[in-house]
């Protein structure tokens, strides 16, 4: 039985002359909470989109649950729940209609779908909003709808891109608890984030991508060893490993 839920092997991708991914290799074990870190333009979104089959890579292979994304993207997608960084939903649909639509796309049974909608609206405290059009929603509320859509079909792998952006503290807490709960129930979580404190809090395993390649991978302790640092938080590690130094701020 395949132990890895996600496996990148020598994946490269170029946009014109610019390398987005360069011989990228790493893997995420089943049931793991995986943090994916990197500065802006490092290749995080490109790798996530490649994993879902939204971008074709130039070389290498990506397997999700043992299935080659390039050969069978539909099977791969049916195993994934995707939460994009910007929560765009159909503005003329209500949250209930949107969740029914998503359930339909994932071939869910009617009874099960309705039960899941009730459960998710309960967890995310959306009851009063469920039958209002999403164009009336705040950013945070839209984010909740997108999360619900990602969880509704009980995916084996949840891919989350910048999950806490735009969420108020209680909603962010709720999301973190929800992700932990889902992982406890056996799902694998792949989370890309800029929020290093969230990654440090939630992820047992992480990788730092820089200029399209993995510069460090493992537990927080592994990363510390790699950076030859004793103590220090993830932010210090991140800055050291990605060779970012703090620029002096001055007033004109």
């Amino acid at each position: 039985m395949e132990d890895a839920m996600v496996k990148f092997e020598g994946v490269s991708k170029k946009y014109g002359n610019q390398k987005a991914l360069s011989d990228l290799s790493f893997q995420v074990k089943k049931g793991e909470f995986f943090g994916y870190l990197g500065p802006n333009g490092a290749g995080k979104t490109t790798s996530i989109k490649s994993m879902i089959g939204l971008i074709r890579t130039d070389s290498g292979s990506i397997h999700v649950d043992g299935i080659d994304v390039a050969n069978d993207p539909i099977s791969v997608r049916s195993r994934i729940g995707f939460v994009p960084d910007s929560p765009f939903v159909y503005s003329k649909l209500t949250a209930r209609e949107f969740l029914r639509f998503v359930g339909g796309l994932y071939h869910m049974e009617k009874k099960d779908l309705e039960k899941r909608i009730d459960w998710l609206s309960d967890i995310f405290e959306m009851h009063g909003w469920l039958d209002r059009r999403t164009e009336e929603y705040s950013h945070g509320m839209k984010q909740k709808v997108v999360m619900s859509a990602a969880f509704i079909h009980r995916p084996e792998l949840i891919v989350v891109d910048e999950p806490t952006v735009g969420l108020d503290p209680p909603s962010a807490r709720l999301l973190k608890d929800m992700l932990k709960l889902i992982q406890k129930n056996g799902a694998t979580i792949f989370m890309s984030s800029h929020d290093l404190s969230v990654v440090q809090e939630l992820c047992e395993h992480m990788a730092i991508i820089h200029k399209g390649s993995i510069v460090a991978e493992g537990t927080l302790e592994d990363l510390r060893k790699k950076a030859e640092m004793e103590g220090g938080n993830l932010e210090d590690l991140f800055l050291k490993l990605t060779e970012k130094t703090q620029k002096a701020v001055y007033l004109d």
């Binding site: 209609e97 029914r100 639509f101 998503v102 359930g103 339909g104 071939h107 009617k110 779908l113 309705e114």
Partner: peptide, 14 residues
Amino acid sequence: SRTPKTQAQALFNK
């Protein structure tokens, strides 16, 4: 607005 039975119905309703 009812629960769709197929992908096609889900898309059509939307």
